[in-house]
Design a protein around this nucleic acid. Structure first.
Lengths: 144, 144
DNA sequence: AATATTTCCGATAAATTTGTCCGAAATAAA
DNA sequence: TTTATTTCGGACAAATTTATCGGAAATATT
């Protein structure tokens, strides 16, 4: 469904958010350790998310990644998916046609658009804060 | 969403089905020409679908691919997706966790399972016959 | 100023997916 | 039986994604 890069990115942001809730800044090594993702690759993805201003980073000793509470309430899953995977998940045709719309639809178009809309809505109505508090409360996990 | 192999496979089967509705058997070259997919790669995918008994093939002159009307009413999109992409689209965790279920869910689990269920239901309730008749009636297209 | 720590970022490597080629096997027709 | 046609299937090639490495840049502490 999502690329590996996107999976790592979402897991990383959720972990950073939970630590930020406790006012702790985290290093890339911590992120990798606590999300079970490859460190160097995750660093790449976090660099991308930093450039997109989705997460804040600081270099040097006592540096690392952090996310303000107000920001984690604004940022939705769709923002992260869009930053990493682009809009293919929203616009792409189920059968890979370059143009596919209500006027000239592929045979799956109608039904597919409906399901994809549900996915989109889910991503657009879920904030990082929602996910971080759920993890913080021990109601979910990030590794395994 | 789906792999290229899967996209080509579904397009190919729909095309074969519409031709079978007119009692015409089609060669791999016809399939490629009328679905806009790479011939050799599509042949590979059709070989897989043939082994899965999703489509019928005959070698030699006047050979090709065909699909009986009764069969195209039985075969659902989910059968094709499963044959080519496996069950990852149904079972896989949104965040890539190897184990993720209601007892030990990732933070996205609940919402994701719901959306994925809709996708699954859509695939399981759509037959090839449905799609082929829609194409035959000129209500949709397979290329572009 | 020197040092240690940490993110940033480009180069490279490995793995997977996508795509091509070509000869073997099957089969219908002459 | 020969020939032409067509799918089958393995080997290979290209492209993309995933993953690693190492040095540059920034910065806090001493």
């Amino acid at each position: 469904m999502f690329s590996k890069a996107c999976e790592y990115g979402i897991r990383a942001i959720i972990y950073i958010a939970t630590e930020s809730l406790e006012n702790r800044r985290v290093k890339i090594g911590d992120v990798a350790d606590n999300t079970g993702s490859p460190e160097a690759f995750t660093a790449k993805v976090l660099g991308l998310l930093t450039r997109h201003r989705i997460v804040n980073s600081l270099k040097g000793p006592y540096g690392g990644f952090e996310l303000s509470i107000s920001r984690m309430k604004e940022i939705r899953l769709s923002d992260i998916v869009f930053a990493i995977d682009g809009d293919s998940i929203y616009r792409g045709c189920a059968l890979g046609l370059s143009e596919c719309n209500a006027a000239e639809p592929c045979p799956m178009h109608e039904k597919f658009v409906k399901v994809r809309g549900e996915l989109r809505k889910m991503l657009e109505t879920t904030t990082i804060h929602d996910l971080a508090t759920k993890l913080q409360a021990g109601e979910s996990i990030l590794m395994r």
